[in-house]
Each structure stands twice: as C-alpha cells, then as structure tokens.
C-alpha cells in the first residue's frame, strides 16, 4: 500500500513487542471482559422486559449471541424465543443450521418470511427491487407487533460502520419502530435504562463493543459451530473466505484471510475491491453511499449477524 506521506506511514507495529507478562489471576482478558459485559446486558433484558426476543439469523454474530445467552441463563432455559426473518434468499444449509441450533438450545424459534409479508401487503417492494434487505424491516416490525415483543436483542456491533459508532446498548424505538437520535438515552456506567411505555420498544445490542476480530476469536475459543457454507467460497488466491449471512442471504462482504500462524481471521487485510465483482445480483453491501446513511443506520441494527 502506498503512503501519501512519510509521516503517515504506519509505524511501530513491526517492532518487536515485549511479551505480556502473565496476567494476574484476578484479571480478565479481552474476550472475558466483553463476555461478562454482554452477559450482564442479557440478564438485564431478561429481568426488565416482559416479552423479549433474540434475533437469530444463523450468522456469526448471532451464533455468538446465542452462546452468550447460554452463559447468561443456564442451567435454566433461555427465557425468550428466537426470532428469524427469512428473506427467502437464505441458503438452505443456513436454514437447516438455524433450525437445528434452536432445537439444540431447546428454544422456541419463530420464523417470519419476507415473502409472506409481501403477499399480505405488509412489505411493499419497489419495482425491480431484488434485494430483500429493506423488506426485512416491515417484516420484523410486523412480527414484533404480532408477538407484542417489547425488546429484541440483536447482534450488531459498533465497529461495523462509522454510522453505528454512537449506537447504544439499549436503543430506543418509538411506537412506530423508529430510531430517533434525540430520543436515545445517555448510557452511564453499566446502569441501563430499560424503561419503555406500552407500544414502544427497545433494541438491545450486547455485542456493541465487540470487533469482528473478537467475534472470530470467540468462535474459536468457544469452539462454536459455524455453518459450513461460511467456508465454501474460495477466493481467487485459493484461501478460504468467510461470507456473512445477514439478511440478504450470503454476502461476500467480509474477506477472511487464512493466517499461517493460527488460522485466525485478519480483518484489517480485507480488500473489498477484490471481490466487489463477485457479489450476487441485488447485493447491497455494508458500504453505502453517504446519502443512504440514514437508511443504512436504520438498517444497521438489523444486520444481526
């Protein structure tokens, strides 16, 4: 990569790093810290809401979310159902994984299909619209209404895009399901304000502070099953590439480069332009044009893995 100015050359990262001394036994490493924060948030949801649900797509973030739910609530049952919005563009392997995982966890799985929402007029596609990303929103809102959910836990992270950097753990939606920046509540310490009036609800994002790297590391540490389809795409160089299930079936939005060292993902080596041409028709990736920012922001919480 070319550098525009010598002063801006990344420095210091190649120099030999002192190996961290063994941590004291009363210290958490980064994944343990993120984990305890997320568990705390999940338990707050269980305790403060009447009818919460967990959005489960089968994607990598929601796979972590379910493990955190197990950690938060076992040995009890996970005290909320799983909700999946099926775009109809999902690969069958993903749906199989979703159903099996929900059954393993002993949870109730609710699936609502974009197709059905279109048929009943809840979701209205604009002519020529192939992607079902946008149509997930009315489908989801209708499901929230149908089951009177007052809270939906999603797997969105703040590092996904700049527009999300200010998202709250507890993100308030008015009775129209809308996100209004002026209505978001300051979050101080770990004291979360979960109060909503009837009809209003909350989106809760326990993974807010996780980076994509943390997600992969956690999957590895917890030995979590990831649907085989994640590994089925090969990049031109031959190394496996992760693809991401989020809404619009499988997207190749995130590259994964196998590392000789530990096989872990190296997100900062992502090169979007290399596989831009490989996108499926109708792909609306994570990158969006500036003027779409508002829309993307609305959509952002939705990409729950």
């Amino acid at each position: 990569m070319k550098s525009a100015n010598a002063a801006c050359t990344p420095r210091g990262v190649e120099r030999p790093w002192p190996v961290l001394d063994k941590m004291s036994s009363y210290q958490l490493d980064h994944l343990q810290y993120l984990e305890t924060e997320s568990i705390h948030i999940m338990r707050e949801v269980a305790a403060e809401f009447e009818r919460p649900t967990i959005l489960f797509s089968g994607g990598k973030d929601s796979i972590c979310l379910l493990r955190l739910a197990e950690k938060a609530f076992r040995p009890s049952d996970i005290p909320m159902p799983f909700l999946n919005v099926d775009t109809g563009h999902h690969f069958p392997e993903l749906n199989e994984f979703r159903d099996r995982r929900a059954a393993e966890l002993g949870g109730k799985l609710i699936v609502r299909k974009v197709e059905d929402a279109i048929a009943s007029g809840i979701a209205v596609p604009t002519p020529g619209e192939i992607s079902r990303n946008r149509l997930q929103i009315p489908t989801l809102l209708a499901a929230i209404d149908e089951f009177q959910f007052d809270c939906a836990i999603g797997g969105a992270r703040r590092d996904e895009e700049k527009a999300r950097a200010k998202e709250r753990f507890f993100s308030f939606r008015d009775s129209f399901g809308q996100w209004d920046p002026r209505n978001q509540r300051p979050e101080i310490w770990n004291v979360y304000n979960a109060r909503v009036n009837p009809g209003e609800n909350m989106r809760v994002f326990p993974l807010s502070n996780w980076t994509e790297m943390d997600i992969w590391e956690y999957i590895k540490r917890e030995k979590l099953e990831v649907p085989a389809i994640y590994f089925s795409h090969k990049r031109p160089g031959g190394a496996p590439r992760w693809s991401v299930a989020a809404g619009d079936g499988y997207r190749s939005a995130e590259g994964k480069r196998g590392s000789a060292r530990d096989g872990g993902p190296r997100p900062h080596h992502r090169r979007h332009h290399q596989h831009r041409s490989r996108r499926k028709p109708g792909y609306h990736g994570r990158r969006y044009h500036r003027r779409d920012r508002g829309r993307a922001r609305n959509r952002a919480w939705f990409a729950c893995g």
């Binding site: 990569m1 550098s3 990262v13």
Partner: peptide, 15 residues
C-alpha cells in the same frame, strides 16, 4: 491509522 487497524478501503479513500 498507526495501529494498522483501519479497514483498507477507508485508508484508500483517504489517500
């Protein structure tokens, strides 16, 4: 930037 943790597309856009 220096911690090299930027998505490359952001860096490219900057450059």
């Amino acid at each position: 930037y220096d911690s090299k943790n930027l998505m490359e597309d952001q860096i490219e856009a900057l450059e």
